[in-house]
Design a protein around this nucleic acid. Sequence first.
RNA 1: GCGAGAGUGGCGGAACUGGUAGACGCACUGGAUUUAGGAUCCAGCGCACCGAGUGCAUGGGGGUUCAACUCCCCCCUCUCGCACCA
Length: 828
Amino acid sequence: MEDSTKDRYEFKRIESKWQQRWETEQTNKVSEDPAKDKYYVLEMFPYPSGRIHMGHVRNYSIGDVIARYKRMCGFNVLHPMGWDAFGLPAENAALKRGIHPATWTYENIAYMREQLKAMGLSYDWEREIATCRPEYYRWEQLIFLKLLDKGIVYRKETTVNWCEDCATVLAREQVIDGCCWRCDQQVLPKTMHGWFLKITDYADELLDGLDKLTGWPEKVRTMQRNWIGKSQGLACDFSIEDSDETITIFTTRPDTIFGVTFMSLAVEHPLVESLISGTDQEKPVQEFIQQTLIEKQRNSPEDEQEKNGVFTGKYCLNPFNGERIPIYVANFVLMEYGTGAVMAVPAHDQRDFEFAKKYSLPIRPVVQPSEKQLNSQSMEEAWEADGILIDSGEFTGLRSNDAKKEIINFALKKGFGKPHITYRLRDWGISRQRYWGAPIPVIHCGDCGIVGVPEAQLPVTLPGIDSPDDSHTPLHKQSDFFMTSCPQCGKEARRETDTMDTFMESSWYFARYTSPRKNDGPLDKKAAQYWLSVDQYIGGVEHAILHLLYARFFTKLLRDLGYLDVDEPFSNLLTQGMVIKDGSKMSKSKGNVVDPNDLINKYGADTVRLFSLFAAPPERDLEWNAQGVEGASRFLNRVYRLVTANTDCFTGKKSAVVIKDLNPENRELYRKLHKTIQRVTSSIETNFHFNTAISAVMELVNDINGATAKNQPVDPAVLSLSLETVLLLLSPMTPHFCEELWEITKHGKSIADESWPVCSQEALTEDELTIVVQVNGKVRNRLQVSVDISDEDLKRAALTDERVCKFMDGKKAKKIIVVKRKLVNIVI
RNA sequence: GCGAGAGUGGCGGAACUGGUAGACGCACUGGAUUUAGGAUCCAGCGCACCGAGUGCAUGGGGGUUCAACUCCCCCCUCUCGCACCA
């Protein structure tokens, strides 16, 4: 059992041999070459958590096949790797072990780098970056300052999402079901100052750009669209009776404005206080607000609350018809969306309908559907679709869509309303009260206010890299760090102690790879121009919103700062599925993790790569199967034996084949060989379905095996070409293995420097075809016929076929359908 | 509820613009080789019937067609994402 490796090819020796050779010969080093077409393939860079996991293996295997394939196709391929190295786990681990987060991070990087190298991935390691290095984040600080100048970065006080466990603020994108995306603890609201990026300024461009990203999965585009959440409608003022104040509402259904029967305010709405102060309703409303706030805290956001509210005792006026409208405070109105005030139209909005039913408020239909008559008494639910306006003054009779425009225009003319667009997207809060992140490069001066750190003083580095004791305490507790002087007036001042959200680093790393060592600016424009955008980006779908939206945003920022000239960072996106075992995602808590190290030691990197590519198409989840790995291993061993048993046929020269001179068996094999090139190439080109590419190669291997097993010797030229093709086609997937056999078969150079094989049309032509004969659509026989048989002859052959006659049972053919080169269907 | 995707053997998965359903692999069964195991090789392997053979089969139901995994309509299930968005 434990000696099961003895019959396997020597993957250990072979893999380290080729890894060393690629390194010494700098096989994967690239630079800009205007003479060649570029191809930039990138896998989402890892967080240096300690060891690579199967998800990484799958991700990088996919990327590596694409990189190696494109390279063989003649592209100048950029394929870099780096580390998303800032983040909370480093702090936690450091605290636990009493070491510095940097130490932990760099050790992990060193170990994981070796693991990746052991997989034989074709990275240009000279471009490696780690985002925690000052050489990287200093440029991020510079970009931050430029954005501060432009007003894209600003500071404000808001209610933030606070995670007590992580002791930091979270962006809205990082709050999942009311809990922290990382530690899963309930997130609490907290009021504090923080730094923001005006992503909302780019909302429209981010939204419109999605239409052009045809190389992205529809799913991801839809998710981003929903996240941006653009709604168009009317912002309209309702004046409050006996008051100078007005309530501004936002609605996407101005066509229903004559159906308003009450007004709902969010409990946090700023006007509530003044509405109720000193009135009889003050107490009940206050109580209701308290109650609602408590419930909001307590309940997880999934369960929808019953609609509740309380009358404020005050009225406002519908500007369209002057009607008196009671003002309520309601628990289902969100302060964060629109204006926090909703005009309630119970006949045409389900929530308002439920609320009206509960508090016996009037329901007045104003949009009549064509298929039924709405009646305020008998309605059981709101009619939310379009229709024709009724009881709507001068707008009566218009269709919903026209009415929307007319009503907005009317409000605009009269001055009490205007067209308005609102987004779900909020500005990106980037302040984190953590140690292990890039310091925000500003200084707070009592006299001058906020002052950017002068460019010449960048980077603002993290303190205490050499003193592990308190090195990971948050910066606001380290006076050595925050005590400074104002760069403008020289007085004593306080350095900003927040660090940046780590998503800042991952928002531009792909661009930095194009000039990773540039030391006088973030990007070399020429290099960026040559390489960007990324032609193929690969990673998990869990980043569909966060990282991918931020990276798109940053690309536009860098473009507007003059660093780049592309609008979008990633032209094509492949979202690979998860690695599953026993029905669920591999995770430590589930105890179903498979360590790639163990597999590589047991089977070799090539086998592990091959299996992860073969078991499922990349976008689907991959069910881990230990026996499947055995299968992949078996296949490679079979190829190894097949090639080494036939080294005689390799002469070191290019074999030439004259199709005419081949006997039928050799011709068949030669045809299969070209058919395989065609199938593998198109599998990769159309959708990166490596699983079918591999199965095509397996078929070819089976055929070569079959041919050599027969007594008749295979033509050496056909045999050597077949085996060469197998190696060339497999080489992007199992590179060490193919390099070794390429060398054994007397090819002078590295297989990585060979060209991708080309399918010959001539080789594909056949002189005989198998035609399926159907009777009434059911397959009854197969006929071997010459390719140039006429339809008439084919019909005749089918009709006279013995088996076919049996099924025709003496009946006459009503109709005969002939599909060229494929089938004959006799209808009786 | 809204949006996206998916349902094919025991399993992972194939099937091009409608034209041989189940490629390839795993598992399984039988055989060869072997002292034995492992490895390797050969054969079989959707379901039903004892079988040549014949039926039936791509979540369910209907439809279009000579022909449907593929196109259309209705329904069911699962996965993922969003969710009181006015």
